[in-house]
Amino acid sequence: MSDILSVLALSDSIRHILSLVCAVVYLSAFATCVVSSGKLKKISSLMWGVGTAINGLIVVSNWAVNGYMPFVSMYQVLTFLGLTYYFVYVYISRRFSSEFLRPYFILFQGVILTGVFFMGKTASAWSFPPALQSAYFIPHVLSYMISYTLVAVSALICIISFFLKGENRLRHEKAVYHLVITGFPFMVLGMFLGALWANACWGSFWSWDLKETWSLLTVMTLSSYLHLRRTEAFGKYAKVLVIFAFIFEIITLFFVGMFDESSIHSYS
C-alpha cells in the first residue's frame, strides 16, 4: 500500500503541469460541448472523462504527498472542488434529467483548475494542524463542497435565464430550483457539522467568526429564495437571491480567510 502511495506522490512540478493540462482539457471539453453536435459531443464526453481522471490523479497525489484527505489549504480544496463538479453533475442529470446543464459544470471545472494552476507549484504541501484532526473535518468540508458546486452552477444558470425567453427560460429557472434544493441540505449539513465541531474544539457552537457569519448569510439567502419563490408577489424575483448567495459563498470561501488573519478559520 505504501509503495502505491509513494508512486502516486508525484512531484510538485508534475502536479503543476497536470493542473494546466487538466484545465486545458476541461475548457476544450466545454467548448466542444457548447457546439455539441454528433461526433463533437462524443469527443467532448471523452475529454471530460480524461479531464476528470487527471483531476482525480492530482487529488490522490495531494493525498499521498500530505498523508491526509487534501482539504486543508485553498489549493487542496479547489483541486478537490473541481472533481466534485463531475459527481454532482452525474447525480443531478439522473435525478432531474437535466443533461443540458453539462457545459455549465464543465466550465466551472475549467475555471477552477485554471485557478489551481496559477496558485503555483509549491502550494500543495501543507501541515495538518491539531484543530483540524477531527472526525468532523471530512464531512464538514465535503458537504460545503457539494453545496458550493450546486450554488455556483445555479447562480450562473440564473444569470443566463435573464437573457432567455419562453420555454427555455422556464427550463433554466426550474433547473436553478432543482440545483438549490439539492445543494441547500448539504450547506445546512456543513454549517451544523461545523457547529458540532466548534463545540468539540473551541467549546462553543457558534462564535460569530466572520467565516461563520458569512456562511450563515449564504444559508439564509438560499432559505429566503426557497420561501420567497412560493409567494405570488415576490416569486418571480426570488431567483435573484441565488446570485447573492453565490456572491456570499465566494466571500466566505476566498475573502474572509484572505483578509482576516485573526479568524479562527484561517488555516489556509
Partner: peptide, 25 residues
Amino acid sequence: YIILGAVTIALLIMTVYASAQGQNA
C-alpha cells in the same frame, strides 16, 4: 418575510462592517 429580510439585512450590514474593520464579528 419582513422579519427574515430584516435579520438578513442586519446580519449583512454587521458582517460587512466587521469585514471592513478586519476583525472578528
